[in-house]
Design a protein around this nucleic acid. Structure first.
Lengths: 343, 343
DNA sequence: GGTTAGCACTCATAGAACCGGAGTGCTAAA
DNA sequence: TTTAGCACTCCGGTTCTATGAGTGCTAACC
């Protein structure tokens, strides 16, 4: 069933107002603030919108609040593009100018910027290493039987990994192996640097095939096991909204958001889409039933590397958040590009 | 003014009870739970204790709550040693058995263990690099003009640092410089590897003295600027205590605890002491006026490397926390020792 | 027909009044 | 010196009431 023009207009006004005030919107409020119909007319329309499932009443004789269905409609069709003030976009940009020490730092800085500007909670996924190209592998001896593997890719530096080394491999040989791998696989995507290729390749590496294989699997495992691959910021911002004036609600939210595994899965899933908006119960996470999550992917040369997003109450300012995300997306694209310029 | 035996006994009972219940303790409660005096007697003593400043009354006709002065006395003189159940100490120990991938991982695991076992907020300071001995320095070329410096010390791995490199130094030379520095300064304390020594030393290094100098200063600066040098865990545990059922209080607490710079300073200061107990307003931090902080230092061969601690409400279970910290301290000492065995 | 004014009705919220109970301080007796 | 007793205080919870924002419905209006 199609909503006519007037219904749409009223619905939008209600959503806009509710996003701002967080309290149910009444017909009088609307008619006295720039609506050209009387409160009675609006009342009738609101009753219709309620039976259609776009509005809900906390109790009789309260105003209406938007349902999730309404937010969905709002986001998909009705929302008007928000505008960032010059100062805001300058502020936003400055976050990317300051820290240029590698991809990780930029992404962490992104999380901070997002949370500070939106006043919601921001979450940023560190890029999957698989799509990146190997620049340099260095094995550094630690103690007997242990070494540190440092992987540098075209997108920056990955986590260091502590690996086991057969006792008969000395520091010099580690160095030689590092050089051989770097030389052979430099500029290959990490995901293709598999043990298969190693076995096919002759020379020094083939003699140490077992070791190299275990090395690579250790690198991959470390990658997937590492929980620090999502950066959070502004978790406590949520405590400012009346939705979370109840401590127990705040606690479940904070607990959910700190499940880095879940956050990672969520962002990973979203990274194939340019933007996603997930409203209330559309979220898989138990603790996000009253939240909305808005994400954007960051990409370099069209390849999606990962995603980042903002988590807020369902009545979040979607328009504003989306423009901010769009802004960050392009900024981030430019900065990341600069890390890969000599592809 | 000295407190007689009976006053002490009553005071202790009040503190014990208040730590448990979080609500003011009345004279009847005490007399009916194993105290050998009548409520009237206890009442008189409580009145005395109040004028002496050890107790406070939230309002007339409420029970008494301990003042900070009382906690101080309790901690310094009256507290009885708490006992950990076998299961608890086994659990505690298991945290140190699981993750043995380097110092950082152990300390992170420590934070988690502390917060989970105490149900308070735990904070652990990463060790200062200065006291450690250099094992290996590796410079890895990133792009033109940039390189990654990886420092391995006897205590494990430090953060990686991105440094600037003069354009006329190529990958091979970086490698040679790495080796030269490693060879010359291997086993020296990081703090003594200063540019002075570099200048005094002949050979390749002296030709590149400027670069090496800037390299070392970059390493030191990175060390001091890095905000990730304190690990937090269980920040949201505090929301479970009635002290923080008010969201605004919870927010100020969380905000304070996330000031990693301040936390670092606090722990750094405490690391010269074996244990510290800081009660309420004794804390420098604004947001900790209603909290107590208990810390312990971790040391290897007698040298203090850093410290860790627990933050909770002033009515925290000091006895229990202290035994747990003591336990962790020895465990940590043993584990860290094993990283340095081949000194 | 759609639109609007008017009116009775609902119900959450805030404040006032009230009460019970836990706890005190003081006094007097043991 | 200790304790029983008693009057008093005051918080916290409950109940009651007034207020007002907001509704649905009806009837008049254009």
């Amino acid at each position: 069933m199609e909503l006519d023009q007037r219904k749409l207009q009223i619905l939008r006004a209600i959503v806009d107002e509710y996003i701002l005030s967080a309290s149910p919107v009444g017909s009088k409020t609307l008619s006295s603030s720039g609506m050209k119909w009387s409160s009675a007319t609006i009342r009738n329309e609101m009753a219709d919108l309620e039976t259609l499932g776009y509005l809900a009443q906390p109790h009789t004789s309260a105003g209406r609040i938007p349902s999730e269905k309404a937010y969905r409609l709002y986001v998909d069709q009705m929302m008007q593009r928000a505008h960032l003030s010059d100062e805001e976009s300058r502020l936003l940009y400055s976050y990317f100018r300051e820290h240029v020490h590698g991809v990780d730092a930029v992404l962490r800085s992104t999380a901070k910027a997002l949370s500070e500007i939106t006043h919601y909670t921001a979450v940023v996924m560190m890029p999957d290493i698989g799509v990146n190209r190997l620049r340099h592998l260095q094995l550094i001896p630690l103690t007997i039987g242990k070494a540190l593997a440092v992987v540098v890719t075209d997108a920056g530096v990955s986590q260091n990994t502590v690996i086991d080394v057969p006792e008969d491999i000395g520091p010099e040989e580690l160095d030689r192996i590092s050089k051989a791998i770097t030389e052979r696989f430099g500029n290959c995507r990490m995901s293709t640097v598999s043990s298969k290729l190693v076995r096919e390749f002759g020379g020094e590496l083939s003699q140490r095939a077992d070791f190299v294989e275990s090395l690579l699997s250790a690198l991959c495992e470390n990658q997937s096991r590492d929980r620090r691959m999502v950066e959070l910021s502004g978790t406590t911002n949520m405590l400012e909204y009346p939705e979370y004036s109840d401590v127990s609600k705040a606690k479940t939210f904070l607990a959910t958001v700190e499940q880095k595994d879940d956050m990672y899965r969520m962002l990973k899933k979203a990274s194939s889409m340019e933007f996603t908006v997930t409203i209330g119960s559309e979220n898989e996470q138990e603790g996000f039933q009253d939240c909305s999550v808005v994400t954007a992917s960051y990409r370099v040369n069209g390849t999606p590397l990962g995603s980042f997003g903002v988590i807020g109450p369902t009545r979040m300012d979607y328009a504003r958040v989306l423009t901010i995300l769009k802004n960050v997306q392009t900024n981030l694209g430019t900065v990341l590009q600069s890390f890969l310029k000599e592809e």
